[in-house]
Write a protein that binds this DNA or RNA. Structure first.
Length: 225
DNA sequence: GACCAGGCACATC
DNA sequence: GATGTGCATGGT
């Protein structure tokens, strides 16, 4: 096991011990996970839950219903999640893509090789790397590591990646260092979000951070990274 | 009232 | 290719 692998697994254990298994993705069904992945872009999850509840109550939580819905109605229902006009378009784009090749069969759409799925998702306007990877890991249950703001922030503050490292490089670091286990990758990302929410905001709150022991090499006693 | 939240596309340089 | 900006609600 490489130094990086050991470090990452130690980080995971420390976070999991502190926060417990996160049980991601919160949501009911694969389509709802996909919808949530788009709606949560740059948005607090609590607001996304309201938007999802509105869609469910409006009878729109199916590929065909979302496809048939008027964009204005869709936008109104997802309003609590913010950016409602752009997100309504993005949802429509995604749904049109699924419907085109698989109709209402979201399972069929998701049940394909990671590389094919990722390439297709990235071709949809409004789906970037993080959203694509969230859909693949959390809706399809397949191994792809999700990198988000918190992941980059934590990894950078621990000196494990540099400011020059982009999304794909950070993702590659995890994927080449961790055993290929979707359950592990699922909870690992969720733990980063948990630790990020508590301790790794733009203005860090370090007191009590479970990752504190990993900062010893950086030499900065004031911050935990 | 300011800051932040589980990004992405597009324009500009 | 790097950087800046628009998109918008709701909690702290």
């Amino acid at each position: 096991m490489s130094l990086t692998s050991r470090t990452l697994m130690e980080m995971y254990e420390a976070m999991r011990e502190r926060f417990g298994h996160q049980g991601w993705w919160p949501g009911d069904g694969k389509l709802e996970v996909c919808v949530g992945a788009i709606l949560t872009q740059n948005t607090n999850w609590r607001n996304v839950e309201r938007a999802i509840a509105n869609l469910r109550d409006g009878g729109l939580m199916s590929v065909s219903a979302l496809h048939a819905a008027e964009p204005e109605r869709l936008a109104k229902l997802i309003c609590p999640a913010g950016y409602f006009r752009v997100k309504a378009k993005r949802l429509k784009n995604f749904i049109a893509h699924v419907l085109d090749s698989f109709g209402d069969d979201i399972d069929g759409f998701l049940d394909r090789p990671v590389s094919t799925l990722r390439e297709e998702l990235l071709s949809v306007s409004g789906i970037g790397p993080e959203t694509a990877d969230s859909i693949i890991l959390y809706a399809a249950g397949k191994c792809t590591f999700v990198v988000d703001t918190y992941t980059c922030r934590v990894m950078m503050r621990h000196g494990l990646v540099g400011p020059e490292d982009g999304y794909e490089q950070v993702k590659e670091l995890f994927e080449s260092s961790l055993p290929e286990d979707p359950e592990l990758w699922n909870d690992f990302h969720a733990q980063f979000v948990a630790v990020g929410k508590h301790y790794c905001r733009p203005k860090p709150k370090c007191d009590g951070c479970p990752l504190e022991p990993f900062d010893h090499d950086t030499g900065d006693e004031e911050d935990c990274w």
